[in-house]
């Protein structure tokens, strides 16, 4: 039992690193990542599960960071956009977004990247139509989605979803141009 509103300790893994922080029960996972752990790559948009900007990966599944309380992530393995470029260079998926100009303002981009990462881990080859529906939970008000689809399809062809979170994503794949070291 906790007292209402009182912060509790949350231990979890974020991008492979053990982290611990304090969170009121009502603190969402997205807020916890941003404000307690300083990982501001995860963006908070609608805060009611509609826009997808806060999408992060929890135990391998892409989820809404605003519809999960930080206390619920206790003991879980979380991946955020910061984990993609952990070693400095861009992840092949990020590179594909860059190459295809799949962003303008960039607000939705972290969420789209994490959704797309999981989609490509599920299977690298997508039809444009199926991918459009697969990514339909992430709103983008700039691109009209066309270049996002171009980017994710290209990243899939380049093997960007391979390897999950074991650090081998994209390794050895003839990625689009200058794939990062990851």
């Amino acid at each position: 039992m906790t007292v209402a509103g009182e912060p509790v300790r949350v231990r979890l893994s974020v991008n492979g690193r053990a982290e611990v922080g304090l969170a009121e029960p009502r603190t969402t996972l997205a807020e916890f990542l941003r404000e307690e752990l300083g990982l501001t790559g995860t963006h908070v948009g609608c805060e009611q599960g509609v826009c997808g900007a806060c999408t992060v990966v929890v135990d391998g599944a892409a989820v809404r960071g605003c519809l999960m309380f930080a206390v619920q992530a206790d003991g879980r393995a979380v991946e955020t956009v910061e984990g993609l470029a952990a070693e400095g260079g861009m992840h092949p998926l990020q590179r594909a977004f860059w190459d295809a100009q799949a962003l303008q303002c960039g607000f939705c981009t972290p969420g789209l990247l994490m959704t797309a990462l999981v989609a490509l881990r599920e299977r690298p080859e997508w039809t444009r139509e199926a991918l459009r529906e697969r990514l339909s939970g992430n709103l983008c008000r700039c691109t009209g989605y066309s270049t996002v689809l171009d980017a994710v399809l290209a990243a899939g062809r380049a093997g960007a979803g391979d390897g999950g979170d074991d650090g081998s994503a994209g390794a050895g794949a003839p990625a689009s141009g200058e794939a990062g070291p990851r």
Partner: peptide, 11 residues
């Protein structure tokens, strides 16, 4: 944070 404060119990 938007929700009102509450007590959390994991059962």
């Amino acid at each position: 944070m938007k929700p009102a404060p509450f007590e959390y119990v994991r059962a």
